[in-house]
Amino acid sequence: MTSQQQNAPRSSARVKRSRVNPMASAALITAAALVGVGVLAVQANGSAPNKAPAQAAVKQQPVASTNQAGQPVAPSADPLLGLPADSGKGKRVVYSLSKARIWLVGDDNKVQMTAQAVPGTITPDADTYKVSKWVTSGKASDGAAVQYEVLWGTRLSPTKFGFDAIASLPPDQMPSKPAAGTKTGGVRLTQNDAQAVWQFATVKDTPVVVVS
């Protein structure tokens, strides 16, 4: 083969056959990719769980809050928690014997606070009483050192009952039940709750409504 034959240009028809349209090549690649994605989607759909993640997820139980002593604390997000019906009107302290709980209710009949309580060994009758006296610190009838005493009772026994707190306990720790065989009309609260009652019932004759 001569040198002229080796360097001879290719025919125009041959050039056309060897060239590939760039647009067509991109279209083919895109189509192939879409087909691959479709296949993967079908495979994934065939192996996917029937339930959506939100439905299949196990609902976690809320963790109960506790105080410093490890005792459970009632939730306080809803201040109207269990407010007994027919417990009076206006500013008052409501005390439920069956629930061992108090509520501080303002002049607008809205609950300002609710707290768990430890009943005394002397139980008041369901009735309306009046606050008569306040004692910063002292000794209760069962011998316990208490503070933030808000005393209440009837006209004949105005200091027979009271709300108070054990002086030696941390601010948010619930007190224990009075010792067996002792007599006290003190309704025990945490230090924080007793102080709140002390600040709330600052006016003599503030009603204390006791319900069953």
Rank of each mutant, 00 (worst) to 15 (best):
A165T: 07
A201D: 04
N21Y: 01
T190H: 11
V94W: 00
W134D: 14
T123I: 09
Q61V: 14
A32V: 06
M23K: 12
V58A: 15
Q5M: 06
S212G: 08
S47F: 01
P175N: 01
V58K: 13
A13D: 09
G82Y: 03
M174A: 10
A201Q: 05
Y129R: 02
A33G: 05
P171L: 09
D125W: 03
L189I: 14
A167F: 05
Q191D: 13
S141F: 05
T2G: 10
P72R: 03
A117R: 00
Q60M: 11
A140M: 10
L156M: 05
L104A: 01
Q173M: 09
K160W: 00
N7H: 15
A54I: 06
S87N: 04
I166H: 00
V210H: 00
Q191I: 13
W134N: 13
V20N: 08
L97I: 05
L104G: 02
K139I: 14
V131E: 06
S18I: 10
T114D: 11
G70L: 13
Q195S: 11
P171N: 15
G181Y: 04
R92P: 00
P175E: 02
D142F: 02
W134S: 07
K133N: 13
A74T: 10
R10L: 15
M174D: 02
A32S: 10
V111D: 00
L34A: 06
G106A: 03
N192T: 10
S132W: 06
D127A: 11
D125S: 02
Q195Y: 06
D125A: 03
R19K: 10
A33I: 12
A52F: 09
S157W: 08
A194V: 14
K204I: 10
G185K: 04
S11Q: 09
S3I: 08
K183W: 13
P119F: 04
M113A: 13
P75S: 13
L81C: 07
S137Y: 04
D108R: 06
R155A: 00
A26V: 13
V93G: 04
T159N: 12
V94D: 00
V111Y: 00
K16R: 09
K160P: 00
V197T: 01
W103G: 02
N192P: 01
N21T: 03
A179W: 08
G143Y: 10
S11L: 05
E149C: 11
A194E: 11
L189V: 03
S157D: 12
L151A: 11
A8F: 02
A56K: 12
Q195K: 12
A74H: 10
Y129C: 01
R17F: 07
A140Y: 01
A32Y: 07
P75G: 11
A64R: 11
G120D: 09
L80F: 06
T154S: 04
L169C: 11
Q199A: 15
A194F: 09
N50C: 07
A24L: 11
S47D: 04
V131F: 05
T159L: 04
